[in-house]
Amino acid sequence: MRHHLILRVITKLLVGAIMLFAFYVQFHGDFSPGGGFQAGVIMAVAFILYGLVFSLHNVQKVFPPWLVHKLVALGVLFYAGTGIVSMFLGYTFLDYGALVPSHPSSGQHYGILAVELGVGITVTAVMVAIYYAFAGRPPRLSDEEW
């Protein structure tokens, strides 16, 4: 693994690009296909790629498992929290109109942005957590057996 110089260089370039693309998909979901879930998957792919090329140990230095676990929970809370805010404002759960009562449709914009962010956070974290869990196991097949 240590010798794949080309892989390493290209990965370094790609990881940034993938993350940028993930952010685009995340925040541009209102206008084009995409949204929190897809962005989360893409973001996770960036980390997984980094992990595959530079070893699990190194990616865990960048994105430590404890943080991943917290983010898994945080995303769901963020989503539910958006709904709870509208409840406190005297509307029904997840009624984003509550966020800007004078202009419901911009309230909807903020609401959608917020919940998509929640989805994105949880999905990224869960996918990375699953990758860590699988990659952290001792493999039965060595590379040559493939």
Binding site: G29, D30, F31, S32, P33, G35, G83, F93, L94, Y96, P104, S105, S106, Q108, H109, G111, I112, V115, E116
Partner: peptide, 18 residues
């Protein structure tokens, strides 16, 4: 009501946000 171009997103995140 939602005023965004992608109707899939508006249903996904608002009408059927739950």
């Amino acid at each position: 009501e939602i005023d965004i171009p992608n109707v899939v997103t508006s249903i996904l995140a608002s009408y059927r946000g739950y």
